[in-house]
Design a protein around this nucleic acid. Structure first.
Length: 233
DNA sequence: GAGGAGATCGTCT
DNA sequence: GACGATCTCCTCT
């Protein structure tokens, strides 16, 4: 597999607003190829920030811009699902890069990861938050929010600021999406590059874990209001 | 605004 | 049977 190189794109200093994005613009955004994911999850996690996560629901399109994620380093990382080795649940993490690993947590929520690195290493990136940019009404409805959704940042945060919220908004479930190839043009779930590059990225400790808590493997677009709130327990 | 606790069920031991 | 890469509601300050 060739090494991933970011293609020449027109770099946008500020993200286009939701009102500026059209379905056509989103469909034209370049789908991230498998070699993008065939790298260390620390690099993949940082470079996924600012990219688009898209979902096709019948004829309509849902989309958000990734603002927060976390790297999980397989056998080297006590906090990772793959740390204890291959199990029926985490099989996708040990498979080829660029596939969705979806798991169910706390009896309530699904979380979306994407597998990284060559097969067999169990590494991946957990998607934690996105800024909703297209299909806001449908995503708010999927989250059980009242319509019409207010355009205020405080209201929009309720759609997809948090891994469980994101999965709900996009209708992601283990049955529907686990093991899905997110690099395929035939997939209804994929990541794409529309040229936007975040100005500043920050690395912090990961959230909600008890092991390897000190490692700065959570990546956020610094100052972005759609990053999920950090809960101190 | 901060913090505690319940909800709820798949996965692993 | 215990635990968990979370969210929401409720109470307290």
């Amino acid at each position: 597999m060739p090494a991933y190189r970011s293609k020449q794109v027109v770099v946008k200093q500020s993200a286009p607003s939701a009102a500026e994005l059209s379905a056509g613009m989103l469909r034209r955004a370049r789908i991230l190829p498998r070699e993008f994911y065939n790298r260390n999850p620390v690099i993949v996690g940082r470079e996924l920030l600012g990219k688009l996560l898209l979902r096709r629901e019948g004829r309509s399109l849902l989309a958000g811009r990734i603002v927060e994620d976390e790297a999980y380093l397989g056998a080297l990382d006590p906090a990772a699902h793959a740390y204890s080795g291959l199990t029926p649940r985490n099989t996708v993490l040990f498979g080829p890069p660029g596939h969705a690993y979806v798991y169910f947590i706390y009896g309530n929520h699904y979380c979306l990861n994407v597998s990284c690195m060559p097969e067999g290493l169990g590494e991946g990136v957990l998607l934690r938050a996105m800024e909703p940019v297209f299909g806001l009404g449908a995503m708010a409805l999927a989250r059980g929010l009242e319509l019409p959704i207010s355009p205020s940042t405080a209201q929009l945060r309720l759609i997809s600021s948090g891994p469980g919220r994101m999965a709900d908004a996009l209708g992601i479930t283990r049955t529907r999406d686990n093991a899905k190839d997110v690099t395929s043009r035939r997939s209804d779930l994929w990541f794409a590059d529309d040229g936007y590059r975040p100005e500043r990225i920050a690395a912090t400790p990961r959230i909600g874990i008890r092991k390897a808590v000190e490692r700065p493997l959570r990546f956020v677009i610094a100052g972005n209001p759609f990053v999920s709130g950090k809960r101190v327990k």
